[in-house]
Amino acid sequence: MENSATAKLETLKEKEEKIFLQTVKRLLKNKLAVTGLVIIILQVIFAILAPLLVSYSPNQQNLSETNLGIGSSHHFLGTDNYGRDIWTRVVYGARISLIVGLSAVSLGLVGGLILGLLGGYYRRIDGIVMRIVDLLFAFPGILLAMLIIAILGTSLVNVVIAISVWSIPGCARIVRGSVLSIKKQEYIMAMKSLGASDIRILFKHILPNCTAPIIVFATMRMATAILSTSALSFLGLGAQPPTPEWGAMIAAGQDFMWDAPHMAIVPGIAIMLTVFAFNVVGDGLRDALDPNMEMNM
């Protein structure tokens, strides 16, 4: 009796591993997703090794070498109006984008998970949770983030808070939906009748079954978070000069469009590549995790 139970558990584990491997295989078949993955890995390497990859410091000015164009000797992406090396600033910018994106998305996930799990599992709380979600969704797009920054004041840390709050409703809705469908399944009923506590059921049995949609959401959300961080900084609501943040760099570059257009062009390409990478990986993950969706996108 016991033996057959362990055997069953083992086949279950094997099955899980198989699903994981299949997902990876499917993801690696998707050329766009692989491209995105390569870009993200490169960016992470840049962000970690930043000081080793550059020969200047990001705020090091050199007023005798201002507005050098792309391809100058010693400055292959040129310099800005203060003679700062643009390649250096873009590499350090990758650090800021990744850190801000990761922290904002993780914070948002925590908030969304708590709301979604509670709302999906406890019928009595569900009404309140959904009203909160509806209310947060009523502020269109980046407006919620802007309102939060209006309250807290302009800084990069407040951008993280603003974007994480803005990520909560989307995450909560996805988690709640998954919980609702999972909690009706027989094995959850079985766990309940065996006397498992709610917390155990929620975290040990329901949460692991919501991971697929959460991973897809988090990946797509990274794209939005990085894009919004740069947009807020561009508007002067996020990173303040001289921080080498991509959006702030574009804002500064806009004033030198005639003499040094590369000041605005280069960081924009960096943003676009990064956001594109997270979007295609998110897309690829969704298709890989749910083969039935493949037809649609």
């Binding site: 740069s230 947009a231 561009f234 574009i250 605005a264 062009i265 924009g268 956001v275």
Partner: peptide, 11 residues
């Protein structure tokens, strides 16, 4: 969907 619209505008 990936292009920052403020940058697109500038370009």
């Amino acid at each position: 969907v990936s292009i920052p619209n403020f940058w697109l505008g500038a370009m």
